[in-house]
């Protein structure tokens, strides 16, 4: 691992008597996709919001590039840390382009530069700029909105981006494709990402390293493989186990790249979970799945190939 960009030292956060985060010590490396995972009330969101000082710690210190956060100019700090919200919160009075241009504008970028950035960002999240630039947020689907939300956070290419359960309100299909998109963007832009989720599956899928939290206490920080192999506690292993069956909930569209094209009528929908077609597969039949991008036919062997691929991740 390269150098640390973020370091928590004995960080404590108390809210009116209850302790949300207890003596947290944590380092996040440069360019890492770091996932904080835990149930609600685990302190993961509080930990995230202390990074851009939406919440101030009660005790301890957080260092960003070896400088204490409280010694940093608040505005500079926030302009250097992108933020993606669970509620998405695109400003409804602004177009898609105006939303993305928000921080570049505050930084007094030239109009030309802003326009280029907007188009570049939209393209990066698979939204056709010409078609989407001038739309209002209300005209977009949830998944499209969060793509724009990510564009807004990444527009100035900040060294770090915080994502607070960004996909928890989305449908499974959009969630999966957005997860892929985050992985792709991360690979391309090398931005440090701190990602909060309650979904162990999502954590395993995305994280370079995962921090499991419970009731304000850090349980384990490790790569997904290490967590799978050596859970630090019963809690972590249970939490991990709870995630495993969810592979059966994978929408069928995920199988497409392993399957054959088909012109037959669909017997199942692209959004249906994998478990729905287990019976016919078990009987050695293949199943045709109706899909917008073209129907496909999948058999048991191909499903096994998919599972092998998931296990490899």
């Amino acid at each position: 691992m390269t150098k640390d960009v973020l370091r928590f030292e004995h960080v404590v956060k108390q809210f009116e008597g209850t302790t949300a985060v207890k003596d947290l010590n944590l380092t996040i490396g440069d360019g890492e996709l770091f996932v904080l995972v835990g149930a609600s009330g685990s302190g993961k969101t509080t930990t995230l919001k202390m990074i851009n000082r939406l919440i101030e710690p009660t005790d301890g210190n957080i260092y960003f590039n070896d400088k204490r956060l409280i010694d940093t100019n608040l505005r500079d700090l926030r302009w250097n840390i992108g933020y993606v919200l669970q509620q998405i919160a695109l400003f409804p009075n602004m177009t898609v382009a105006q939303n993305i241009a928000l921080i570049p504008q505050m930084k007094h970028w030239s109009k030309e530069q802003i326009r280029e950035t907007v188009d570049e960002m939209l393209t990066a999240v698979d939204l056709e700029p010409k078609q989407y630039r001038d739309r209002m947020p209300a005209e977009l689907s949830g998944g499209e909105q969060q793509r724009v939300g990510i564009c807004r956070a990444l527009a100035t290419k900040p060294p770090m981006v915080l994502m607070d359960e960004p996909f928890s309100a989305l449908d499974p299909i959009s969630r999966t494709s957005l997860q892929d998109m985050v992985l792709r963007l991360h690979k391309k832009m090398k931005t440090t990402i701190v990602f909060v989720t309650h979904d162990m599956n999502e954590a395993m899928r995305l994280g370079d390293r995962i921090a499991v939290m419970r009731e304000g206490v850090l349980q384990q920080v490790a790569t997904p493989e290490e967590i799978a192999a050596n859970p630090a506690s019963n809690f972590v292993s249970d939490f991990f186990a709870s995630a495993a069956p969810e592979v059966l909930d994978t929408p069928l569209i995920e199988l497409r790249r392993f399957a054959d094209r088909s012109t037959e009528a669909g017997e199942a929908q692209e959004g249906d979970p994998l478990r729905a077609i287990l019976t016919p597969l078990g009987e050695g039949k293949s199943v045709t799945v109706a899909c917008q991008q073209g129907n496909f036919k999948v058999n048991a062997t191909q499903v096994m190939a998919f599972l092998a691929d998931v296990a490899k991740d």
Partner: peptide
């Protein structure tokens, strides 16, 4: 106004 917008404004360093 939805507090989410206020949180966003704050996180984006708007004056």
């Amino acid at each position: 106004i939805d507090p989410a917008y206020k949180e966003a404004e704050e996180a984006f360093g708007m004056s």
